[in-house]
Computed example of a mutant assay.
Amino acid sequence: MKIWNATIHTMTDRGVIENGYVCIEDGKITAVESGRPAELAPEDIDAAGSLLLPGFIDAHTHLGIIENGIAFEGDDCNEATDPFTPHLRVIDGVNPLDRCFQEAREAGVTTVMTSPGSANTCGGAMAILKTAGRMVDRMCIGTGMKFALGENPKSVYNDRDETPITRMATAAIIREGLAKAQRYQQELDFAESDPDEHMPDYDAKSEALLPLLERDVKAHFHCHRADDICTAIRIAKEFNLDYVIVHGTEGYEIADILAEEEAPVIVGPTLCDRCKPEMQNLNLQNPKILQENGVQIALCTDHPVIPIQYLPTTAALAVKGGMSRENALRAITAGAAEILGVADRVGSIAAGMDADLQLYHGDPLDLLCDPWLVLIDGNAVVKR
């Protein structure tokens, strides 16, 4: 299949191809060229000058694990009975038939990072999902490990009169868990190298953290305040973690430090009120200031905090705060894919990438404009 007569925003070094076409085969992009194809088939799509973009990526959500319009029965986000739960997997709680997956697709959001909540110092394994499918295992293209600092763990466990009720204890619990996992790995190595050594007893929590310690998985640290962001950096450096700052509400206060530390930030939510003390300094200029200082950024809705269909509106707010339109679009496409570690599959339009694409007659950042065609893995999931 080909999509032709399109203005292609590749989100690569090729920039914008004013009159071009994309070839798709077996769910992959096989060619991206300028001009008109030499041959056309009945299934090929005339874009009629529409804007062709990669599918949008929401870099931090709770999509499917907090179902829309359902209270306790549909909320599987926080196992607030143990402050350190790396052995939990978000895929075991996601309902891919939640109506919000359809709303994501209708807004051109084709990939999301969905996550356990931030009640615990470590909430569990996250999942990078395509937004089309009926079985989460077949939608998943990556993972991450969720940690939380600051107000959320403090509030949850203070109400229960259990640890952690301070930022010190929150950090200490994370350190203890990571140190135990390091020791567990050493015991496994000793047992494999020496037949006289006994294998350690299976430890589900430590086992879940081993890919993190090997840097095969990224640590995602929920933190809003500048001091919490610095704690996340401190812990990540102590254990040599590949890490991401999630929310980063006060990131602009330490933008130069974040740049020096090469700490990527997933900014959001921004289309909201200052709903808790650590968000009192929410500022629409945050994405612009971070980027101007050389910090790699993505944007997110934190769905359902902000409904996922407003991810493009979040990008529009970043433009209102001073970002360029192209940079704002990049923050929900290629930039998000790079931070999540899936830029080899999604986020840009190039040969070899998944055919996650969308077509617009108008401005993709206009609240009144929706894509008229959305493809995921080359299959039309929205066609207006």
Rank of each mutant, 00 (worst) to 15 (best):
D137L: 09
A125R: 13
F101D: 11
G144M: 02
N95S: 12
A127S: 12
M139E: 04
C122F: 04
M135T: 13
C122R: 01
R105W: 01
T121W: 08
T110Q: 04
M113L: 15
A125G: 10
C100D: 15
G144V: 02
P116I: 05
T111I: 08
R134E: 15
S118G: 05
T121V: 11
M113Y: 07
K130C: 05
D98I: 06
N95T: 10
C122K: 01
G108D: 07
V90H: 11
L97Q: 14
Q102Y: 09
P86S: 07
F147Y: 15
I128F: 05
V136C: 06
Q102R: 14
S118T: 02
Q102A: 13
D137F: 10
V109Q: 09
T131S: 06
G124F: 06
R105E: 14
T121Y: 07
P116A: 06
G124E: 08
R138V: 05
F84R: 03
D137E: 15
V109T: 14
A148H: 07
P116L: 06
G142Q: 05
C140A: 10
A127W: 07
S118I: 04
A127M: 06
L149G: 11
I91K: 11
V136G: 05
N120V: 03
R138E: 15
T85I: 10
R134I: 11
A119L: 00
P86C: 08
A107E: 00
A148R: 05
D92L: 11
A127Q: 02
A125V: 11
A148N: 08
D92W: 09
D137A: 15
R134P: 03
T85N: 14
I128M: 05
P96F: 10
R89Q: 12
R134H: 13
S118Y: 00
R134C: 08
